[in-house]
Design a protein around this nucleic acid. Sequence first.
DNA 1: GTACGAACCGGACGAGATGTCCACTTAAGG
DNA 2: CCTTAAGTGGACATCTCGTCCGGTTCGTAC
Lengths: 225, 225
Amino acid sequence: MKRRTDLFTGQPLDEHPRPRERADAAQNRARILTAAGKLFAARDPREVTMDDVAKAAGVGRGTLYRRYPDTASIAQALLDEHERALQARLLRGEPPLGPGASPAERLAAFYASMVELLDAHIDLVLGAEAGSLRYATGAYGFWRAHVRSLLVEAEAGDPDALTDVMLAPLAPEVYAEQRRRGLTPQQVSAALSGLAHGVLRPPPGSRRAAPGGRGRGGRDVGKRE
Amino acid sequence: MKRRTDLFTGQPLDEHPRPRERADAAQNRARILTAAGKLFAARDPREVTMDDVAKAAGVGRGTLYRRYPDTASIAQALLDEHERALQARLLRGEPPLGPGASPAERLAAFYASMVELLDAHIDLVLGAEAGSLRYATGAYGFWRAHVRSLLVEAEAGDPDALTDVMLAPLAPEVYAEQRRRGLTPQQVSAALSGLAHGVLRPPPGSRRAAPGGRGRGGRDVGKRE
DNA sequence: GTACGAACCGGACGAGATGTCCACTTAAGG
DNA sequence: CCTTAAGTGGACATCTCGTCCGGTTCGTAC
């Protein structure tokens, strides 16, 4: 992964060997990102071409390629801040999403947040995956690590095999198709929540301690009588 | 959807206005499919171009485009027979896969068969989906209908939203990534089986799972009071 | 066996996208 | 100012796509 992930803001993050970005360069970067954002939102993100972005931003091809090798990278840069925000909340946020809740609840909360993110930026997410390089992206590695740790904590089957399975429904194409068919974000979230609770549940009769005995608390306790 | 799905065999299916395929045409079709099959297997299926196929098959571009609008269609034609076979077994096959078993078992069996198919023809499946037109394909509609009926039978939450979710792990990119990471088909099958049983766990004594919010459906009741 | 029309073939062609290259411009520091 | 190097933009060569059409071959009727 390139360390040039600070493409978005431009001014912060002047690393050691990096002299500092010139003013005109920073302005062009901003123009590129702004113009690209509009293009992605306006038409099918997968149809946006490097030429389009260059023209819309009012810069030459060379200038564009200087920073971004393809349109997917541009979309990724636009998406970056949102993903970082979610990542932070996963690590240090309030319980349903952050540490403290049961694995099933945390997974369900993660699903809900991802659905929010997909819904808000479906154009960017689609645009960022031209060519299914999805699994090469840094963000995907993070999601995987997170989900995997939840699976391990819940002792739910083979974590290695299950992780990608549990992440698969979050593929942007899947969500886009669901929306296209008329499903609401709430419906999708609910279905994913059901998935989370279905899989991260101790098999009945298993002698294994209820995973996170403290965990599954909330719900069952509330429900029981 | 084009009705030209009989591209593969060539000789059967002579519809009303279709006179019959000429001998030279049939031969070219065979050459195209043979050559394309080798190309798909030899390199990244998504990199195979129409030019490549034409050259490898020893036919001109025009001849190729006469039958197949793009490489995805060629891969689809090669895949067709295998998918049909599986579809037949789903409808009329022996119990674990066909009718007779519980929804969870049938879903697990379906997963296992799909993993087999993916593993045997991962190159074709990847090649058939250039551009995520996956959801437009006839086969996907069939898988969806099948899974949906199982979900309905098991009364597992909102079938509309859950169907695509349950189908998502079968996306070829997901499976390819899992194999790339060293997982065996058996591991993946096992994980999917766990998924099937986790989600389609029959809610004992429950009339119905609450489909709505937070997927609590079936869970609490199932977990016995 | 021959002749004819329809189906078929294959390569040329134009449009459009990609990624690179390099002469020119301009910001930033002395 | 004046120097330096980062930054710029558009031309270029290449590739792929999809279509078009003159020429060829099959299948059939005679």
